[in-house]
């Protein structure tokens, strides 16, 4: 029996988008747009800024806010219509994608999953006419406006590398970057292992929604199922720490309790602060999580 194994290289440092990613993206965007229309019709429109642009009428439904009733049309036609509007000045959606080394693990890789989530949210935003920007390091954010090619976004996503030059964790990006006032949606995507609620608090402001999408590798969420009793020697992808154990086993049980406690803490903290939050494995289809993030409130 030799010594402990050497620290392995990151198994999935690069972004690999599925072959059908564009097709799934387009379908998801259409679904989200249709849902948005319905919500607006129900008077539950979100993400509306101060200014609104009139785009038409629709029949009034019982229970709707009477302030949205077009009183002039009611006087002229004796029928109740509601004014349909769209924001005059498109707000900004900002996304922070964790590109630290810990995002380069998992199967599929956590960074790939994070990039798919970011791409889907940005595509949905462009569809709604908002300006989207993606910050994945300490450098300038990558921005897109409506009308720009989706291919640019995909190319940018595929250029990202976990632990690569210029990569950064969300807490590092939040500490060194202040979103513009017009940012109406701030989404943090990553494993958020080093993130704390105190890192998010300074960026909350009225009219801005914050969402935190945690991505963990399958073996991080459920090591027992992945290892099936095998001995394993764990390494910290971002440091020099090492641990050994077997899952299932005593150490694995302790780990699962601690992880569960940590996630429950995030759920409570974000709920109390009005921050959207969800956690999922990197092998969960991105459509499910994107919808959850945009419909959370």
């Amino acid at each position: 029996m030799g010594a402990a194994p050497k620290k392995p290289r990151l198994p999935a440092p690069r972004v690999k988008l599925p072959r059908d990613y564009v097709r799934r993206l387009e379908r998801l965007v259409l679904q989200l747009a249709a849902q948005g229309e319905r919500r607006e019709g129900l008077g539950q429109a979100h993400l509306l800024g101060a200014g609104e642009e009139f785009i038409g009428h629709r029949p009034y439904r019982e229970g709707e806010d009477l302030r949205r009733l077009d009183w002039g049309l009611l006087a002229r036609s004796d029928q109740a219509f509601v004014r349909r509007t769209r924001r005059e000045a498109a707000p900004v959606w900002s996304l922070l994608l964790d590109t630290s080394a810990s995002m380069g693990i998992g199967s599929p890789g956590k960074l790939s999953q994070g990039a798919q989530l970011a791409g889907a949210i940005m595509a949905a935003g462009l569809r709604r006419g908002v300006r989207v920007q993606l910050k994945s390091g300490l450098g300038p954010a990558f921005s897109l406006r409506r009308g720009q090619s989706l291919g640019i976004l995909l190319s940018h996503l595929e250029s990202l590398e976990a632990g690569g030059a210029g990569s950064a964790s969300p807490e590092e990006m939040l500490a060194s970057w202040r979103p513009a006032r017009e940012v109406g949606l701030l989404v943090v995507i990553g494993d958020c292992v080093g993130l704390g609620l105190s890192d998010l608090k300074p960026h909350q402001r009225p009219g801005r929604r914050m969402v935190m999408l945690q991505v963990l590798a399958p073996e991080e969420l459920d090591p027992a199922a992945q290892l099936a009793g095998a001995a394993v020697h764990w390494f910290d992808p971002e440091g020099s720490e090492e641990r050994s154990g077997r899952a299932p086993g005593e150490a694995a049980s302790v780990y699962e309790r601690r992880l569960e406690s940590w996630l429950e803490g995030w759920e409570r903290a974000t709920r109390s602060r009005g921050i959207g939050w969800s956690v999922g494995a990197s092998d969960v289809p991105f459509e499910k999580r994107v919808a959850l993030a945009l419909e959370a409130r």
């Binding site: 194994p5 693990i105 073996e219 095998a230 020697h233 764990w234 390494f235």
Partner: peptide, 9 residues
């Protein structure tokens, strides 16, 4: 024993 990386180490 397999050497593996764990972000939540």
């Amino acid at each position: 024993p397999a050497g593996r990386l764990l972000g939540t180490l």
